[in-house]
């Protein structure tokens, strides 16, 4: 479904990605784990078209998209819940969700998708008319995911959904990520919380300073010594 080949991205003179390749197949949850500064968010930004690749290709459903504008990529069916949640704090929860449906015009389909998103995150229903800036961190994360879902994506990119959240909220969010996948949306999940990420994912890639170090089924990686030492905090 998504095929990234030899992707090179640099910020000025600094190379953030040294030619990485990865693949996401229809129906999977794939996770990209790694430390701060490994290039995880950069990868997602390049897929969404927010930054241009220096070299390499990104293909979505067989079509090259690495020269496509970000708003067109959303229309093709790739949504991203960005790093830091990226909600519009000056607008209400309702308006944020309406912005998610910006590219769509069928009011009935939008309304039913909104119902679905709100049933996944009942907290958002309680806060529906509240300013998004007043939500708690966990609620903002829920809003960011719900808003991305309203673009009706076939591929959902999640950038660190667990960042800065209480453990219990993290549990809830990951359970919902599973539900979203079960409902048919393919997911590429970027996480520092390798423990949780490897639990939900089918397959995983380990990114270290711009290079893919390991890849394979999530369960296999979770059992490997190297990952256990470096990312799961076990000795």
């Amino acid at each position: 479904m998504l095929l990234v080949k030899d992707l090179v991205v640099s910020y000025g003179a600094v190379k953030a990605l040294h030619g990485i390749s990865l693949e996401v197949r229809q129906g999977e949850v794939v996770t990209l784990i790694g430390c701060n500064g490994a290039g995880k968010s950069t990868t997602l930004r390049a897929i969404s078209g927010l930054i241009r690749a220096r070299a390499g290709t990104v293909e979505f459903e067989g079509k090259p998209i690495h020269r496509t504008a970000p708003h067109e990529i959303v229309r093709l069916g790739i949504a991203q819940s960005p790093e830091g949640r990226g909600i519009f704090a000056n607008m209400t929860v309702e308006e944020n969700l309406e912005l998610g449906a910006y590219t769509r015009s069928d009011p009935e389909a939008i309304a039913s998708d909104r119902e679905w998103a709100l049933s996944l995150f009942p907290r958002l229903r309680e806060r529906f008319r509240q300013n998004a800036g007043t939500l708690s961190g966990g609620e903002q994360q829920m809003l960011a995911i719900a808003r991305a879902l309203l673009t009706k994506p076939r591929l959902l990119l999640l950038d660190e959904p667990s960042l800065g959240l209480a453990p219990q909220v993290v549990q809830t969010i990951f359970k919902i990520i599973r539900d979203i996948n079960a409902a048919g949306t393919t997911i590429l999940l970027v996480e520092q919380n390798a423990h949780m990420a490897l639990k939900v994912a089918h397959r995983a890639y380990v990114l270290e300073v711009g290079v893919i170090k390991m890849q394979g089924p999530a369960a296999e990686l979770a059992a490997s010594d190297e990952v256990r030492k470096a990312y799961l905090g076990m000795h």
Partner: peptide
Amino acid sequence: RAMRAVSYNDRNAALMGIPV
């Protein structure tokens, strides 16, 4: 609403499919 979104953060507005 799209104008306000771009004004708040153009990068995240683009992720909503708004032609910035």
